[in-house]
Amino acid sequence: MGVAWSAPSILEKLHSAIACCRTAGRAGPTVLFTGHSYGGGCAILLRLHAVIDSGWIEALRGCRVAAVTFGAPLVFGASSLNFEKDPDESSQAAIVRTVGESTRNYVNQGDIIPRLLGPHASSILSMLSLVSPGFGSPSECGSGRRAAQYLGGVVGSIAGSYAPVGSFLFLYARSDEVFARRVEACGSPSEAAELDRMLLPAKAAFMPYCIRDHSTALYVALLSSVRDKTAPSIDETAAA
């Protein structure tokens, strides 16, 4: 896997970056692992690596560490999160909890990627078949056959077997305003239910925009709007 391949090189560069912060008189720098889409998945896995690898643990001692992803696919297997059946439950649960507590996953409206491998994968695939008749069944159309083969060979075999971990921040636009809704995957049962509901796409609104919403430019734009909204006004700053 590419993350394991890149981890030693990143650690080497991270050492110098953290040292640079410390020599500037700043103790405990903030280290953020980030990425979009597949890059976001890599960022979460690197965060996991930083929790279980002794070299990383030592390097990041005293740092605030977080993973921030944008439209990232789910990377934790649902079965691996079933701690009740795991004899080594405590350590595994602690690792996932640590990763989850420091992971923020941004999901832009109907973005397909964070949902594609999740619990509602079958619903998504059936919806895609509405648009593209080639989905899920062989057809005469070359593109449709390729799509079916792809789904059968890759997505179909792993879809639905992944579970959300960390905080999920859903960005959405309402009229002329942009909002963000935060839901914790490992929170209360009601929050878990809400997250499950939000990961289930609605056909009419999801289908036309599921690809467009995956654009990094949209993530930047919507988050900028949220920042502008949350930034304290000049009056508030003066009062503080």
Binding site: I10, L14, A17, I18, C21, A24, R26, A27, G28, P29, T30, V31, L32, F33, T34, G35, H36, S37, Y38, G39, G40, C42, A43, L46, C63, I112, L128, V131, S132, P133, G134, F135, S139, E140, C141, S143, G144, R146, A147, Y150, L151, C210, I211
Partner: peptide
């Protein structure tokens, strides 16, 4: 005091997704 490690996604998904979602729509089967 901020360090960012950023990964890039891969372009190969772009073509795949376009094939999956849009091409069959533009070129209906049958």
């Amino acid at each position: 005091a901020r360090v960012i490690v950023v990964y890039r996604g891969t372009w190969s998904w772009s073509d795949t997704i376009h094939d999956l979602v849009f091409i069959p729509a533009a070129l209906p089967c049958g």
